[in-house]
Write a protein that binds this DNA or RNA. Structure first.
Lengths: 399, 399
DNA sequence: TTTATTAACTCAATTAAGTTGAATATTCAA
DNA sequence: TTGAATATTCAACTTAATTGAGTTAATAAA
């Protein structure tokens, strides 16, 4: 985890060029297909500067020409778009029972996915499993090794020692005190970024989901617990110690359900996978996967439907808190549940009245479902890497 | 209000230099007195680049030499510090009943304050009052007009049309649809920034208060209602529409006190100035100012003490939400109440257990009182301007 | 059909600002 | 007294931006 944020540093010609390259790539991503002159206006660079950068990017295979503009007077612009195969990133999600992997290309398309059950969570073993996945992903997808920008590893947070006493519940056995970033980087021999699931899942929506055109939004991630990823103007909010987004332990009902963390009324006790498992167990139903939930939902199983309906209130409450505190363009929900459940919630939920989000000029929904499905966090790992090449900044790399 | 965020744009030599200048100033501010070589290491610029920038800044009166370093081997570094009179900014807080003004210099010191009662909130009249305050501030403080960087105007939020139906409660009569930024800029003939109180107050702590060395923190501002300012890595979080930080209408007690906004259990119904006024009124006590509160507190007046003690629970709850969502280095409370009340709360309040903020490596308090007192928002207006010159970025100016 | 206008793009020259490396000054430690 | 360490300055050098003139290709007007 990057506890230290990207710290602003001094600029020089080299860093300026890198910043401008990223900025041009970001504009192509968001506006494609697009011509040089339009990029120049948007970035406030000269057309000459954009031309030079476009030539460089095209030479390196990031972009390709896709035709010419047709409308209007004057010389039609040569249009450029991202070249899907220009780069790729591997997202890896390490869970206590399995490792998930997804290879995602520059335009956010999935080129390969796999899942490997874990016999042991021993760090060296996990690192080797991930390494094999990397090799397999490259060979099966036909993407050249030099096009792999890096690997984004998503592990259960929070990172570091914090007061959440159930940290052990989600943490991986045998990883306490292990420098996971260094371990993976040494084994994989490519750049490695470590992040927790909710931030990664939020980024996945920007790289290949419903937030492609949004800079400021929240993502409520349903994993084992409930996490939050906040994107502000294109940059993730990580907090002073890198653990921002612990939505699951926000108290939504003082004096409510007892939570493993010792408090009462935590959001997680109402709307997490753990809570639905417990609820169904009390009704004699054991579920082990998202597929089980899908089956129950297809049957409109009464216990599940009851839980779903009850859950809308705390979820709506949490949405109200986020709308008032963060003023996001939208709130995206996604993660480990089947899409149908999220859709049901969005359809049935009464959104909190009287929040900042009720704007007459609103043109996108207050709440929407993420497009990345149950592998949100895995895709998010890749998105961490992909997003990086589109994020202009003059900053030291996180150590 | 800057609805549009600072948008990243392309860099060129001029923008690079501006970025580097701000970066150098920021390092001097945070580390002063400090030598060129140290700044160069911290900014990853060459000492030559830093030397050039320092010479420029010194020539323009932003910095001055303060002696030489004494420790260690080698040539002692020439130390530099901010020159207080190098620049100043005027903070203006427009309330329904009065206009407050504070002239703050580069090192965050107050050079002048005044308060003018308003006979009318008519925009043209208010602008003229502010203009007179500006003229008076400059003449009485002896600061040259060309040193005035700008005026930061703080008005009650939220800005724009939002669902908070009590917006009318805090908004100024006669200002609906008025482009306040343009009005003040036209009248004052200097750069004008408009912001809402909580964001401004949060910045005040960074420019001249307890957050001088912090980049990521939250500020809970007690005005008429309760607002929030979140600083992330040195940048304010404004949200997609510029209204982030509506803490007062976060529901902390579902089904609790009825709020003017139509919901129940809003934080504002427990811990705002409005709520204490109502509570005391029910006990036959009318208060009209912070001084009245101070007097009652000095007497340990039972009704006030009861309210204070009851208020710790929702306040603690709000702190828990912020700690879990934002993972701040600290949470600062401040605003319209007397300092003694905040100190009492900090002393008596039971902080929420089991949050991210309980770290063994924590070295500053989880909650602290702001240093700007009851004029937080006014100073904050000035801080908006001052902070700007210390914030490195390659970005278009907010329109 | 011809001509003017508009817009996108390229080339060559210029310029701003950062870096590099050698030289110099000052202090501490052996 | 001498050598190592550190801060600073000076004079090239380098990168990558901008500027302005010129080219190309489309639409609009004559």
């Amino acid at each position: 985890m990057n506890v230290q944020q990207n710290q602003a540093i001094g600029s020089n010609p080299g860093r300026t060029r890198l910043h401008n390259r990223r900025l041009v790539l970001e504009h192509v991503r968001a506006q494609q297909p697009v011509g040089r002159a339009q990029i120049a206006r948007a970035t406030r660079l000269s057309t000459q500067a954009v031309s030079n950068i476009i030539a460089e990017l095209e030479g390196e295979g990031w972009l390709h020409e896709t035709g010419r503009a047709s409308n209007g007077r004057g010389l039609p612009a040569v249009l450029y778009a991202l070249k899907a195969s220009g780069a790729a990133a591997l997202g890896v999600e390490v869970r206590p029972d399995a490792v998930l992997a997804a290879l995602v290309d520059l335009i956010g398309k999935t080129r390969f996915t796999d899942r490997v059950e874990l016999q042991s969570t021993d760090p060296a073993h996990v690192a080797e499993v991930v390494n094999q996945l990397k090799i397999e992903a490259l060979s099966k997808s036909g993407i050249a090794a030099r096009r792999l920008l890096g690997v984004g590893v998503v592990m259960p947070g929070p990172f570091g020692q914090v007061g959440l006493s159930d940290a052990g519940q989600s943490a991986l056995p045998g990883w306490h005190g292990v420098d996971a970033q260094a371990l993976f980087a040494d084994t994989l021999k490519v750049p490695v970024v470590l992040e927790h699931d909710s931030i990664a899942a939020a980024l996945a929506e920007r790289v290949g989901g419903v937030a492609k055109e949004l800079g400021t939004y929240c993502f409520i991630y349903f994993g084992t617990g409930v996490g939050l990823g906040v994107m502000n103007n294109g940059y993730m909010i990580r907090g002073a110690f890198g653990n921002a987004g612990e939505l699951g332990h926000v108290v939504v009902q003082p004096g409510g359900n007892a939570c493993a963390c010792g408090n009462r009324g935590c959001l997680e006790t109402y709307i997490s996978r753990f809570s639905v498992q417990q609820h169904l167990q009390r009704h004699g139903i054991d579920i082990h996967s998202g597929d089980d939930l899908q089956v129950l939902f297809d049957q409109r199983q009464p216990a599940l439907m009851h839980w779903l309906n009850e859950a809308t209130t705390p979820l709506s409450h949490a949405i109200g808190i986020l709308e008032n505190l963060m003023d996001p363009a939208t709130i995206i929900i996604g993660g480990a549940f089947p899409d149908d459940l999220f859709d049901y919630w969005i359809d049935k939920m009464v959104l909190p009245p009287g929040t900042l989000a009720e704007r007459p000029d609103r043109h996108i929904a207050r709440v929407m479902r993420g497009a990345s499905g149950r592998m949100s966090a895995t895709y998010g790992g890749a998105a961490l890497i992909i997003n990086d090449v589109f994020t202009p900044r003059i900053a030291a790399e996180a150590s």
